[in-house]
């Protein structure tokens, strides 16, 4: 059984069809990159998988560890082990970063019937993850994402991923807006999470991140369809030729 299996997924937003029949299988241990031009539907796909409720699924099926993902609420998908790093992480004024992450972790643990962690038990775990992402401990008591720089926000997303240890992580344009040092640190955090039990989907516009996190598969999404799939070399090829040649009508038969 695949960790994630998407079958013929069609999705509409505000009356427009954005995803026009996506098929994709992701097995445990794999890293998939989904690349494509702006407006191709990459972020929509990520958000539908994370169960954002503003989209209308008109056709198709998504199984997450054999369960019907499309029947889950966002929090259920999260508790089942699906995580999405946001392209634009939101601020939660007045709520400390560490407190927020412990609440999230405990919500997941509670769902799975694991005892919740108190603050004392949580601190060592949190410190270790902060260290992995080379983040200042001061960030643990500051309000979630409030006053964080763009790079700090992205790192904070990966920190949350590291704390929650999800089975499937979807990183939505996590590389955008990062300078080279931040990119390296984020990649380190992502690579540390790679394991035979876990899978990742990297949604990205550029090949840059893929220099640091080498994917097993690369898919090209254009106009709501996956038009090409291949190995890591495909990303390099795209970097040179761009997406233009991948228009559906330009595809070889």
């Amino acid at each position: 059984m695949s960790l994630l299996e998407i079958r013929n997924l069609h999705v509409k937003a505000a009356g427009h069809e954005i995803l026009k029949g996506i098929d994709l299988k992701v097995d445990a241990g794999e890293v998939h990159a989904i690349m494509g031009p702006n407006g191709s539907g990459k972020s929509t796909l990520a958000q539908v998988l994370a169960r954002r409720e503003i989209y209308e699924v008109t056709e198709g099926q998504v199984l997450f560890e054999g369960k019907d993902l499309l029947a889950m609420k966002p929090e259920e998908a999260a508790c089942e082990g699906l995580f999405m790093a946001f392209q634009y992480p939101l601020e939660i004024p007045g709520i400390g970063n560490a407190y927020f992450m412990r609440s999230a972790l405990n919500a997941v643990r509670k769902y799975r019937g694991i005892p919740e962690m108190n603050a004392l038990e949580f601190v060592p775990l949190f410190r270790e993850k902060l260290k992995l992402l080379e983040m200042d401990e001061k960030l643990s008591n500051r309000s979630v994402n409030e006053g964080f720089s763009g790079g700090e926000k992205k790192r904070n997303e990966i920190l949350q991923m590291a704390v929650l240890e999800p089975r499937l992580s979807i990183l939505d344009e996590t590389d955008s807006g990062l300078d080279i040092d931040a990119l390296r640190i984020v990649a380190k955090g992502v690579n540390a999470m790679r394991s035979p039990e876990r899978a990742m989907i990297l949604v990205t516009h550029y090949q840059r991140l893929l220099n640091y996190v080498i994917p097993d598969f690369v898919h090209v999404l254009v106009d709501g369809r996956i038009v090409r799939s291949g190995g890591p070399a495909l990303a390099l090829e795209l970097e040179e030729t761009g997406y233009a040649t991948d228009e559906p009508d330009a595809m070889p038969a």
């Binding site: 609420k73 966002p74 998908a77 946001f86 999230a104 919500a107």
Partner: peptide, 12 residues
């Protein structure tokens, strides 16, 4: 904002 918190596992 709600989606963000719910995606982390918190009920609405």
């Amino acid at each position: 904002q709600l989606f963000y918190l719910r995606q982390r596992g918190l009920k609405a």
